[in-house]
Write a protein that binds this DNA or RNA. Structure first.
Length: 898
RNA sequence: GGGCGGGUAGCUCAGUUGGUUAGAGCAACUGGUUUACACCCAGUAGGUCGCAGGUUCGAGUCCUGUCCCGCCCACCA
């Protein structure tokens, strides 16, 4: 006999190693089987495993394992992402400890340090994933800086450049003064901030002594002002249009212009125009042919154009100083507290500086097709609502700044002819391999945004664009992938861009629907929720509110963690983490383990090496209603389970399995089988347990594999076993006639009877153990049913005495569908208390009866409600009336006693 | 400012297209070493389904309004 519990860690390590050794997760290009592909969202090499990864990868593993069970040819592609800025910052911090910057060591040495770091730490997260049991094909492991992957990234750049989607331009970009690089709009997060609104007076040149006042939150950029703008229809300022005013610092005359973009009712209605440091101003400047004067440098400090007094000063310090300066000179009419939104750098956590800078941009290709793919349902989002977010983004899409002033990443494959004008495309060389005479060229210093490389993840992991590699990886077979599992926070960063890349890069020309279907990178996107702590806060390192997943795995087993997390993950909703749920997951595994201990009580003889063998052993003539009911329930459970899984509702699917396993199988069927441990019963157990292992396996792969092997269910690994659908199983069990005896209903009634009687006993404060006598009164047709189950009933009620009576007894009673039960408390009946109990129950019955009567007297209801609803109401009424009659009979007898 | 999601038992959540008496787990309480499991079994209690209207024979479910909580987007400087 096995132990009452098991060591999850030993068992999990053992099976994972065995699965790998036997290539269980290896892809096989095997048409005509359907392919089922998932690309893992590549975790950052700088990251450590957190609860989000656990949830995300558990879901993928469930999908993938279930696809294998359905005889699909599975390919789950793992990999990691080089994490551009994030890793670069890490290495720079290391250098800073030695008081060095990356420039001190130089590009090559720096890259070597980064590579070393990645060698050392980069694969930790993969090992952690393995602990979780993920069944990726590790032979296909990809890293975004692998040489073939890098070539794919560069090829993408070159191709889009060739087609005119990539261009270099002088634009206002989001500049991070800490990381010293440009950022995309998506990497800027808006935050509310307490700041001040300065009202600054600009003197009119043509009317000395007259002022126009502007309101600004950024006085430190005044030195870059090139105009003051008002709304063309603003009556207050009509007289000033065409005039000039003095820039208050670095005094110079600047024009007063009119532009529609100015809001009349904000501040004073007059706006200072600083094209070099504000997006609106930049556009206004463009419209009016104004110059742009940059007064802030790349490091966030003011430059010489800010004037000697402020040059070299940090921008926030300068804000204060300029404020003081203005006040001193009587140019500050007021300063008020103000809350506004400021764009912050996602990584560095400081406000980004809008800055004029020459960068590479991508004008997104295939934007309309990318919308179409969703609108036509070629790609489906779950939950669907995210489609709106996606479409909205595409509708408002802006060109993507793809160059980064970093070293760690894919270096932009553009070379400039030495000594020539870099801004002239005539002097450019753009190719994957570079020019043949490299000595005459300088390569662009910048690298590409990490997300640029992530955008081709589903393509490049399958070998694209190398024809040979694509063939070897089975591109044509495995692409498009089936499901993508990720968080909605990266719809723009990643999901949308992958869709665009797929659509654009797998060919040119106008896309037909069929062509779109061929090119999309995935057919379904499942968006997980965000995991929060019990207070609803996002889990994060800085808050320290995230449990270490490895600790959880240590404590509850990977199986427990997986199932616990899934059970608290409602469809696409945020998840409040609770360790209790994980503990519950572990409990389920232990319970499953123990149900097999029970099975071992019986004879282990008989072939259970296959479903056919087990079915063969079933002697259908020996089956009793209990057996048929549990088998029927199994089929019903499988039906519901399949539906839930098809809808990606994992927690519901689990709940369905859980209820069947725990309540129907363990609490009921196992209990009653103790009364009749014969061969037939054990075969039924074998069948149920086999199916349970298969059904649970995608969720808890380890413990199910262990039990599968221990009980000799087959030659193969459970991980490689197919699972027949409920219909197929129903067909295989066709020799059993579930329909003829309404067996499930019969068992339901018996269960109701037992539960009600137990409750009756408990209500009288009688110890479960105490043997009490019971009588039952039932109609003639029903007596047989009770008689058939008398043995079970007696066992479950822990009584020696359960006999028929033909009339109502003056004893505590409960009325169920099959009849009335009376409990003989052996003279210790508290008549008063019992009458009180009955009175309360009768009141409740009266309420229900009245409700139903009213309903059934309503002509509209009778006319309009569907028949089965009316029939249901009638039944209910009849039942309750009968019940009331029974209880009243007892009640009146009790009355005569007292 | 626009959009989305949520408000159901003390807690975390289920509740298909409106239809029998609104469910589960956890926590609480009561009783149990019943020959798989105390990581267990049996039972009890706990809800005016955020609020107000409306549609309907019938509303947790549909409509309108409203109040909270959370998220995303947005150039009021």
């Amino acid at each position: 006999m096995i132990d009452t519990s098991y060591s999850s860690n030993d068992l999990e390590q053992k099976w994972y190693a065995k699965w790998l050794r036997n290539d269980c997760f290896r892809r096989k290009i095997s048409p005509p089987k359907d392919a089922y592909t998932i690309v893992i969202p590549p975790p950052n090499v700088t990251g450590i495993l957190h609860m989000g990864h656990i949830l995300n990868n558990t879901i993928q593993d469930v999908l993938v394992r279930r696809a294998r069970q359905k005889n699909q040819s599975v390919f789950w592609i793992p990999g990691t992402d080089h994490a551009g800025i994030s890793l670069q910052i890490k290495v720079e911090k290391e250098l800073a400890k030695q008081n060095k910057t990356r420039h001190d060591v130089g590009r090559e040495a720096f890259l070597n340090l980064a590579r070393e770091w990645r060698e050392k730490h980069g694969n930790i997260i993969l090992d952690q994933l393995k602990k979780l049991g993920v069944s990726c094909d590790w032979s296909a492991l990809k890293y975004t800086l692998d040489s073939d992957y890098s070539r794919a990234v560069l090829a993408t750049f070159v191709e889009w450049y060739r087609r005119g989607y990539i261009y270099k331009g002088l634009r206002l970009v989001n500049w991070c003064p800490i990381s010293m690089t440009a950022l995309s709009d998506e990497e800027v997060i808006m935050r509310q901030q307490d700041s001040s609104l300065y009202y600054v007076k600009y003197e009119i040149v043509e009317k000395p002594g007259t002022f126009i006042t502007v309101a600004t939150t950024r006085p430190e950029t005044i030195m870059g002002d090139v105009a003051v703008a008002v709304h063309p229809a603003d009556e207050r300022y009509q007289d000033f249009l065409g005039l000039h005013c003095w820039r208050p610092i670095r005094r110079e005359a600047i024009p007063i212009i009119a532009d529609e973009a100015v809001l009349k009712d904000f501040g004073t209605g007059a706006l200072k125009i600083t094209p070099a440091h504000d997006t609106v101003d930049f556009e206004i400047g463009q419209r009016h042919g104004l110059a742009a004067i940059g007064v802030i440098d790349k490091n966030g400090k003011l430059n010489q154009f800010a004037g000697l007094e402020f040059a070299g000063m940090d921008r926030f310090k300068a804000r204060e100083k300029v404020g003081e300066y203005l006040k001193k000179n009587g140019l500050l009419s007021k300063k008020e507290n103000y809350v506004n939104s400021v764009g912050f750098s996602e990584r560095a956590g400081v406000p980004v500086e809008p800055m004029l800078s020459e960068q590479w941009f991508l004008r997104y290709p295939c934007v309309e097709e990318a919308k179409w793919a969703i609108q036509k349902g070629f790609i489906r989002f779950r939950p669907e609502r995210w489609e709106k977010t996606y479409i909205y983004w595409l509708d408002n899409i802006k060109d993507w700044c793809i160059s980064r002033q970093l070293w760690w990443g894919h270096r932009i494959p553009v070379w400039y002819r030495k000594g020539k004008d870099r801004s002239d495309p005539q002097n450019w060389h753009v190719s994957v391999d570079g020019p043949g005479d490299p000595e005459n060229w300088d390569q662009d210093e910048d690298v590409l945004d990490t997300w640029f490389s992530s955008a081709i993840w589903p393509l490049a992991t399958l070998g694209w664009p190398d024809k040979e590699a694509m063939k070897e990886m089975g591109f044509d077979y495995f692409y498009p992938t089936a499901d993508l599992v990720t968080g909605p926070d990266i719809i723009f960063f990643w999901v949308a861009r992958m869709i665009i890349s797929g659509l654009s890069l797998l060919g040119e020309g106008v896309l037909s629907d069929d062509e779109i279907r061929r090119r999309i990178p995935f057919k379904n996107v499942y968006f997980t929720g965000i995991i929060r702590d019990h207070l609803g806060r996002k889990m994060s390192k800085s808050l320290g509110n995230s449990p270490d997943p490895l600790d959880l795995i240590e404590k509850y087993g990977a199986d427990g963690v997986r199932i616990g997390l899934l059970s608290m993950a409602p469809h696409g909703q945020d998840i409040l983490f609770s360790e209790d749920r994980v503990a519950q997951g572990k409990k389920l595994c232990t319970k499953l383990w123990n149900s097999f201990r029970f099975r071992q009580q019986g004879s282990m003889e008989g072939d259970r090496g296959s479903l056919a063998a087990i079915v063969e052993r079933i002697d259908s003539s020996a089956l009793e209603t209990d057996d048929m009911a549990i088998l029927g329930k199994l089929l019903e459970t499988m039906d519901e389970f399949e539906h839930a899984m098809a809808d990606y509702e994992f927690n519901r699917a689990l709940q369905i399995l859980y209820t069947f396993f725990w309540n129907d199988y363990c609490d009921w069927y196992i209990e009653i089988s103790k009364m009749r441990a014969n061969g037939t019963v054990w075969v039924v157990h074998d069948l149920i347990l086999r199916q349970l292992l298969l059904l649970f396996h995608p969720f808890i792969p380890f413990v199910t594999e262990e039990l599968w092997q221990r009980h000799g269910y087959g030659e193969k690994f459970l991980s490689e076993e197919l699972l027949e659908s409920s219909d197929e199983l129903r067909h295989k069990l066709s020799k059993i006639d579930f329909g003829k005896a309404a067996v499930m209903e019969e068992i339901e009634h018996i269960r109701e009877l037992v539960a009600a009687t137990r409750a009756l006993k408990a209500q009288f404060g009688l110890a479960s153990r105490r043997d009490v006598k019971f009588y039952f009164k039932a109609d003639s047709g029903v007596k047989e049913i009770i008689a058939r189950h008398r043995c079970d009933i007696k066992y479950l009620l822990l009584t020696q005495f359960f006999e028929e009576t033909s009339e109502a007894l003056e004893l505590p009673t409960t009325v169920v569908t099959l009849g009335s039960i009376y409990m003989d408390t052996a003279g210790s009946l508290d008549v008063i208390a019992e009458k009180e109990r009955l009175r309360r129950e009768l009141m409740e019955l009266d309420r229900l009866i009245e409700m139903n009567q009213k309903k059934l007297q309503n002509e509209n209801f009778l006319r309009r409600a569907p028949e089965e609803v009316i029939a249901g109401a009638r039944n209910l009424l009849a039942e309750n009336v009968a019940k009331k009659k029974e209880l009243e009979a007892v009640f009146s007898k009790l009355s005569t006693i007292s």
